[in-house]
Simulated scan of single mutants.
Amino acid sequence: MTAGARRRPGVSMADVARVAGVSAQTVSRVSNGHPGVVEATRRQVLDAMQQLGYRPNSAARALKRGEFRTLGVILFTLATTGNSRTVEAIAGHAAREGYAITLIPVAVPTQDGVLGAFTRLGELAVDGVIVIMEVHLLDAADLTLPPGVQVVVVDSDAGERYPVVDTDQADGARQATEHLLGLGHPTVWHVTGPAESFASERRAHAWRSTLEAAGRPVPPVQRGDWSAESGYRAGLVLAGEPSCTAVFAANDQMALGVMRAFHERGRTIPGNVSVVGFDDLPDSGAFFPPLTTIHQDFAEVGRRCVDGLLRQLRHEPGHAGTELVPTRLVIRGSTAPPPG
């Protein structure tokens, strides 16, 4: 069959059935992925589809079955490591469950912006929506999603109103701070993320609470924006503090900037200063020295988001409130007891 024939418009299911030597019902079953088709027959039908250039009408199938096999994802930015890796995990697990994803960025995190994204997703025909909130510029009390839409929210405090999946930010920060205190450091300095970030604020609050519970002084925080450059600027300030022997940075990229600043100021890591990050990026073990950090299981976050949404779509029992994915401390070469 020539390439021109493969592109011939108007190829129908009946045409495929005729070429394959089967019934139109069998073609339909193969097209819909029905398991009760003999493998040889299935291959015969697929070969006929390829030969004729037939593509199943997924929109028509979706309307008939009442589902589109597509999940919408609304988010405010892909620039952060957490968001990009969460989206990657959602897409991967959705694909394993036979779903595609449609991504809708929201330029400005407002109620109108979120509702506009839901409108666009409605036009694109999705079965349910995962909202990656990340920022609390949208107060949970003000967030009202359209009724009748199945939703799971990531990284938010909307757990009393919608199912939420999040990394256990607080426990990760506690582990980081306790690790440094356990090595003998008198206190731990902190480079925090942006003030509008849920994750940043949870980590900072847990760091402060851990120091207070241990009866240790709470140093002033250095505010970053998740970038290595902001960590570098914060590190230059901390390098001028002779009493600073331990730093917990709210993500690995800022930790990298902190380490560079200390190196430039002649303060060795971990000889003079210990540094802990958060995320456990794939390259964290290649930092110099390798970075002690808090591991986030983004794959598990993505899996739970998709599974939670699919349970709603199937009207199965699911979790209510916030579901936390555990973190764990990964000890490498950037931490040691304080000098002396």
Rank of each mutant, 00 (worst) to 15 (best):
A125V: 03
A91L: 08
L103E: 04
A89V: 05
G116W: 00
N83H: 11
R29E: 06
V27P: 06
A125C: 09
G33Q: 14
G128W: 13
L71G: 11
N57H: 13
I101P: 08
V87Q: 01
V38L: 15
R55A: 14
H93G: 08
P56S: 07
G72V: 06
G21M: 05
V126Q: 09
T77V: 03
D15S: 12
E97M: 15
G66D: 10
V73S: 05
R61E: 04
Y54N: 04
N32D: 10
I74S: 09
N57V: 09
T80F: 06
N32G: 14
G92P: 02
E88G: 07
S12F: 07
T70D: 02
M49S: 03
A95R: 13
G128S: 08
E97Q: 15
S58F: 08
G53K: 10
I104W: 04
T102E: 09
E88D: 10
S12V: 03
A89F: 06
R6G: 13
A125T: 03
A107D: 02
P56H: 02
G98A: 09
A95D: 03
A79S: 14
T86E: 07
G36N: 15
G66M: 12
E67W: 11
P35R: 10
A94I: 03
G33H: 13
R7G: 15
Y54R: 04
G113A: 01
G92S: 12
R85V: 09
Q50H: 14
T26C: 12
Q51I: 02
G92A: 14
S84T: 06
P109Q: 01
N57E: 07
R55W: 06
T81F: 14
L71S: 10
V27K: 02
V108S: 04
T70G: 04
T110M: 01
A100D: 12
A89M: 08
A59W: 03
A17K: 06
L46W: 09
R7L: 15
A125K: 13
V19E: 10
P109N: 01
T77K: 09
G10E: 03
E88T: 07
G116Q: 01
A14Y: 12
R61T: 09
M13Q: 15
P35L: 07
A5Y: 02
G92I: 01
P56A: 09
A117L: 00
I104F: 08
P109W: 00
I101D: 05
K64E: 11
S28T: 07
A17D: 04
I101R: 04
T26F: 11
A95F: 05
T41F: 12
A62Q: 05
T119S: 14
T77I: 01
S12T: 15
S31C: 13
L63N: 02
H34P: 06
V129W: 05
G72S: 09
A94Q: 06
L46M: 15
D112I: 02
G21H: 03
V106M: 00
Q44Y: 06
A94E: 04
S12G: 07
V11G: 12
V37W: 12
E97D: 06
L78G: 01
L115N: 07
V45P: 10
V106Y: 00
S31R: 07
R42A: 09
G128N: 08
A40T: 14
L121R: 04
